[in-house]
Structure formats: structure tokens, C-alpha cells
Design a protein around this nucleic acid. Structure first.
Lengths: 244, 244
DNA sequence: TATGACAGTTTGTCATGACATTTCGAGTAA
DNA sequence: TTACTCGAAATGTCATGACAAACTGTCATA
């Protein structure tokens, strides 16, 4: 039954419930509120921070959705541990690697504009003869190859250059160009490496590869970009946290 | 700007916001509300169904989280079309297959109680010498093998029999036994089939397999069950819908 | 001792009201 | 014609109040 010392800035443009949720989120991840800790009840908490109960509840709701606490009617709210891994995000490999302190490198194998082939046109909902970028990249970490990435996206979205692509991830570039992602459908499967993949990834032909196909969608639901990535199975896997 | 004919039962134990959300969910998935459709504003909707605005908002919030609609301040709420695939759920393969109309079968290869080996003890947070079920199953669909599944769980959780396991999925059995899941960590990767896996799954040795390792957690955050499943890559992949 | 009823605590649901912020289009002025 | 201003419309945020439902522990009773 630990209390938390939170300062709330009512003049801030950040919503109150978000300020509260962030503070608790931080405290839980940092261990200030260890697992099993029972929180005060909503009413007291609201009073403590001079908030209304709905606002306090909104903050708690977010913590529940993020999988940091559990609420049980008639019982109360409890911190659940161990510190959950962050959920799979719509950020792509580049950020994931950066976050882990690794030094990702990118080698652009090819970057060309082509008229979109049928399957791509369908995936991206494009008309006949639409122009798309077709790019193939090799991702290395610590100098060792990790993934082969192939992507397609409309040329109208952004101006892509080899230099930009070698300096930053595709998604970061697009985001900076004003493209706002909201969702992505992914399919994760497996395959064995063919001769070319094997030589690029420095593995033996017949080795296991993780295959990921992704279609990214804008907030309108319109497809923006699609791609197919293959990873060395001995160096990469997808972590997913499911909640119901 | 289509209106929806919803009947709301205020005497039902199902919360009002859930009734509304379900109705819209259904209508969107069935195409009654096609993509791009602009919904009425919250106030009118609330009035139309005799609800308060917060309740209506709560329903809309759920639709947003499920990725069915987008809301933009100052603009309104728009349908973004039925997700191509249902989101990956904490239900496991059995239900997924059932939902798709397939006829899953299970063959129990082995079911034994053993003292938990070290790595399992650690994964499940068990003490020294704890007893666990160790079960290996083969899942078939339409009579053809799809997956090899290996699971461990404390014997204290439920009473497992071969008959039960062949008749239903593990998770359904546990749920019926009163176990409540809340979360699961999954790791999806790839491997190539060894001799034994190949013969069980009726593929050639060296074929690609999708590997999934999962640890299921109770609402308290305590681990309940862990397992390692391998799927034929030519017949299975994981679909994931990401949102940010 | 064991069982069942009851009361207290806590979250879940719902209503009403108010103001803030963002977006977009219409109208106006240069 | 173009650019700017302003207001309408819609969602976002927050407060207050009330009752319902679920869980827990206690106390009385068989």
C-alpha cells in the first residue's frame, strides 16, 4: 500500500490522466512500486491528487491496458510483475535494435522505381500503371548480416535516396516526411534459405529463416507500404505479448 | 452517414456500452457499415439510443481499440473497414481453427507427470521437486498433420486425461477448470525439421518450421503454463495486427 | 467445528453538465 | 483570385453524483 508522490501540472497541455498514468508507469517499471503492491482505492487516489474519480479511472484503465496492473472488483488494484516486456510496436526493426543498444547498419542493395506488379498493386490498392519504389536492403548488426528486406511503396509518398536509407530506417524517414501510420498487418512464418539469401546473410543454404510480410496502413485504413523481410532464425525472433 | 437500428436491453447484465459496441462491431464486419462511412456525432448517437455521452464514448473507444473506426477531433468518426484478419488472441490454435470452420483433431503422443526440469521450473517459477504435466500432442486438420505441441504445467492446476485432451484444446480445458488467463508472452521464430519432427508432421527433414514458445500468465502475473510448438511452415503462419 | 448470512469495501457502470481544442469551410478583405 | 479571419461542428478532457455487482472477512447459528 505504497503512496506515490506525483506532481500534477494542471496548466500543462498534457491531459491529467496521462500525467498520472505516466507517473505510475514509470514507478512500476523502475520498481518503486514492486509487483504485488496493492494500490490505494480509486476514491482515495483521486482525492490525493485532487482529481475526479473518472479521471483517475481513465489513468488506471491505461495501466491495465498496458498490462502493468490488475483490477478486481471488490478487491482493489495490484501491480503485476515481472516488468513486462514492451509490446511489439509499429516501429520496425531499426528502432527495436537501437533501443537495445545495438548498432544497426543498412546496405541498400537496390532502389528503383517500377510500375507496380499485380500482387503489389492489389496489396496497396493502386490503379493500373502506378509507379512504386522497389527497394531491397540488407540489415547488419555489429557488422554481421541479420535480415534481407524488400519493400514496395508509392513514389508519391516521399523522396527516397540511398543515402537517407543507409542513415536511418524506412519508417523513420516516412514519418519525417509527414506520413502517419496507424496500423499494420503482419504475417510471421518460416522458410529455408535459398542460394542467394544464404550468400547475402552468410548462412548455409537450407538454414531456417523467419519470414515476415507486412502491410502498413494509414489512419484512414488505406495501405501505405508493404514488404517482405527474411531474418536469420538464429539471430532473430518476434516477441509478442498477448492480452485478452 | 448511415444510421444503425440497435435494440438495447437495459435489463440485460451486459453493459450498455458493450451492447452498442458489439452491434457496431457486427455491422462493420458484415459490411452494413462499409469502409469510409462517416458515423453520426457522439451526441446524436447517444440521444438516438437514449444513452449518455460518456457511455456512447466508451463504446466508441472500444471500436477504436479494436481498429474498426478512426476518430478525429473536429471531424468525426469514420469506419475503416473490417480488419483483414482477426487479431491474434490468447485462445490458442484450437479456437482459431474452429473459427475458420476447420475440423481440428488432436492425437496425444505422451502425457506424463514428472518432476520439473530446471528450465521449466524457472519459466514457471516453481520450487525444487515440483510436479508438472509434460504433454506432447500432434494437431491435425482435415486429417493432415499441422503442428507438434509440447507443454508443461503444474499438476495442481487441473486433472488432465488423454480423452479430454483429444476432445478439446488445452486452454479450453484449463479455462473450464477455473484457470483464468490474462496474458501470454510469445516468441515466434523458425527452425528446420529434424528426422523425428519430419516423420510426425509428414514433411521432409530439413523443411521449414514455425517455432512458437509461449508462457501463459494468470491475472496475478504468475506463470501458469509454458510450451513449445512447431508448425509446418507451408500450412501455418501467425497473423498480427499492430496498432500504435 | 463448520456453515451460511450479512455487511463493508472496492471496482464497474451510467447520467448530466461544462469547457477546451482541433478541424474545416464560409465569408471577407486585400 | 488569393489569403486571412472567424465561427460552427466534432471530439477531447474533466467534474460530480449515484447505484450495481463482486469479493472478503466476520459473526451468528446449527
Amino acid at each position: 500500500m505504497t503512496e506515490l508522490d506525483i506532481t500534477i501540472d494542471r496548466s500543462s497541455p498534457i491531459p491529467l490522466y496521462h500525467q498520472v498514468a505516466s507517473a505510475f508507469d514509470k514507478a512500476i517499471r523502475e520498481g518503486v512500486l514492486p509487483p504485488e503492491t496493492k494500490l490505494e482505492n480509486e476514491i482515495s487516489l483521486a482525492k490525493r491528487y485532487n482529481l475526479s474519480r473518472p479521471t483517475m479511472r481513465q489513468a488506471m484503465d491505461q495501466l491495465v491496458r498496458d498490462g502493468l496492473v490488475v483490477r478486481r472488483r471488490g478487491v482493489g488494484t495490484q501491480v503485476i510483475g515481472p516488468p513486462v516486456r514492451r509490446n511489439l510496436r509499429l516501429s520496425s526493426l531499426y528502432n527495436d535494435l537501437q533501443d537495445e543498444g545495438a548498432a544497426p547498419q543498412t546496405r541498400v542493395l537496390s532502389l528503383e522505381t517500377v510500375t507496380a506488379p499485380e500482387p503489389i498493386r492489389e496489396k496497396l490498392g493502386l490503379g493500373d500503371g502506378a509507379e512504386v519504389y522497389h527497394l531491397r536492403r540488407l540489415r547488419l548488426v555489429d557488422g554481421r548480416p541479420l535480415a534481407l528486406m524488400e519493400n514496395w511503396l508509392p513514389v508519391t509518398l516521399a523522396q527516397l535516396t540511398r543515402e537517407d536509407l543507409e542513415a536511418d530506417g524506412l519508417y523513420n524517414l516516412l514519418r519525417r516526411a509527414g506520413v502517419d501510420f496507424r496500423m499494420a498487418h503482419q504475417r510471421v512464418g518460416a522458410a529455408v534459405a535459398d542460394e542467394e539469401q544464404a550468400s547475402q546473410l552468410k548462412v548455409e543454404a537450407g538454414s531456417a529463416l523467419v519470414v515476415m510480410e507486412r502491410t502498413a496502413l494509414a489512419s484512414s485504413g488505406a495501405p501505405i507500404e508493404c514488404g517482405r523481410h527474411v531474418y536469420r532464425a538464429d539471430r532473430y525472433a518476434f516477441d509478442i505479448t498477448l492480452m485478452n
